[in-house]
Simulated assay, not measured.
Amino acid sequence: MITRRGFMTLVGGGFASFAALGGYAFAVEPLARLSIARYRVIPPGWTPGLKLRLVALADLHACEPWMPADRIISICKRANSLGGDAILLLGDYASGMNFVTRHVHSSEWSKALSTLQAPLGVHAVMGNHDWWEDRTAQKSGGGETFAHRALMGVGIEVHSNRAIRLEKDGFGFWIAGLEDQLALRPGKIWNRRRMAGLDDLDGTLAQVTDEAPVILLAHEPDIFPKVPPRVSLTLSGHTHGGQVRLAGYSPVVPSRFGDRYAYGHIVEEDRNLIVSGGLGCSIAPVRLGVPPEIVVVDLG
């Protein structure tokens, strides 16, 4: 039979453990950790002899104190050291939280991202928060956001339903980037009753003019069931791995598919998707079991 002292010790120990776990999730994992998630993929029909390394960054959500400009520069320095043939930015550069001491201006985070370097360039798509934080873009229902302009202003390729052909060692491949699938919020403007996307998968892939492999950048992974086998690899962010992921499961995921596309390498019907756990935080500055990460993908 447990004594009163034993009961109080048990309760006190449980409270201390809970407090320590909360402190870690709030102050350590989001701020002090940076992991490298590595994947090796040989998609069906991949060009023999084409060896390609892609380095991907997702969901920075620039703000202070969680993701200031100097931390972004440090992340970029680490990304540059990983030997990527191309560096891919998967959207959500703007903050998605109110728990901030200061919002980092697009001129600051884009200047930090301009330090990224790769032989085949730096390529970006937009995320939902890049659209949601731009009231002018919401009113116009399209066009360019401040995030588009900031990235293009520092020389970063922005793909808005656009595909381009690149070459490495004489072998061609395509990078195709979708505009965001949740770009326009509900509201009185344009009588929108639900989220509206500006993505055009068919139109983007129609720009591919040969049989070279296609790498698709899509901020939200929910597009994946519609992606044809012609695409060798789809890369996404958005979910943050749920921000809390324990025993390989995320209880809350911003996806209509729940945990199905929450994180990691997913293979369905010989089609490949990799979902990054991202770098920053959205809604609340908490991460547990899914530390900020840079993704490295070796193809071929």
Rank of each mutant, 00 (worst) to 15 (best):
M1K: 15
M1V: 13
T3A: 13
R5P: 09
G6S: 02
F7M: 14
L10H: 00
G14N: 05
F18A: 15
E29H: 12
L31S: 07
L31W: 03
A37H: 15
R38S: 14
Y39R: 07
I42E: 15
P43N: 04
W46E: 09
P48I: 06
L50Y: 05
K51F: 06
A56S: 14
A56N: 09
D59T: 08
A62S: 01
C63W: 07
M67F: 13
P68L: 03
D70H: 06
R71Y: 04
I72C: 01
I72W: 07
K77D: 11
L82D: 14
D85E: 07
L89R: 03
G91Q: 04
G91Y: 09
S95K: 10
S95V: 09
N98H: 15
F99L: 09
H103D: 09
H105C: 01
S106C: 03
S106H: 10
S110Q: 13
A112D: 04
A112L: 03
S114I: 02
T115K: 08
L116H: 12
A118P: 02
V125I: 15
M126K: 03
G127L: 07
N128M: 09
W132L: 13
W132E: 09
D134S: 07
R135V: 09
Q138M: 11
G141P: 08
G141V: 09
G143H: 00
G143Q: 04
F146R: 12
H148I: 12
H148C: 06
A150W: 00
L151R: 12
E157R: 12
V158H: 01
L166A: 13
K168A: 10
F171L: 07
F173T: 03
A176D: 01
L178M: 02
E179Q: 06
Q181T: 15
A183K: 04
A183T: 10
A183I: 06
P186F: 09
R193E: 15
R194N: 07
M195Y: 15
A196G: 01
A196K: 12
G203N: 07
L205N: 12
Q207E: 10
Q207L: 04
E211M: 15
I215Y: 12
I215P: 01
I215L: 14
E220V: 04
E220Q: 14
R230L: 06
V231P: 06
L235W: 02
G237E: 05
H240V: 03
G242Q: 13
V244F: 02
L246C: 06
L246R: 07
G248I: 03
G248P: 11
Y249H: 15
V252M: 08
V252D: 01
V253T: 12
R256N: 04
R256V: 11
Y263V: 01
H265V: 02
I266Y: 04
I266W: 01
R271H: 06
L273D: 10
L273N: 10
G277R: 13
S282F: 11
A284S: 11
V286C: 00
L288K: 08
V290N: 11
E293W: 10
V295W: 01
V296C: 10
D298C: 06
G300T: 11
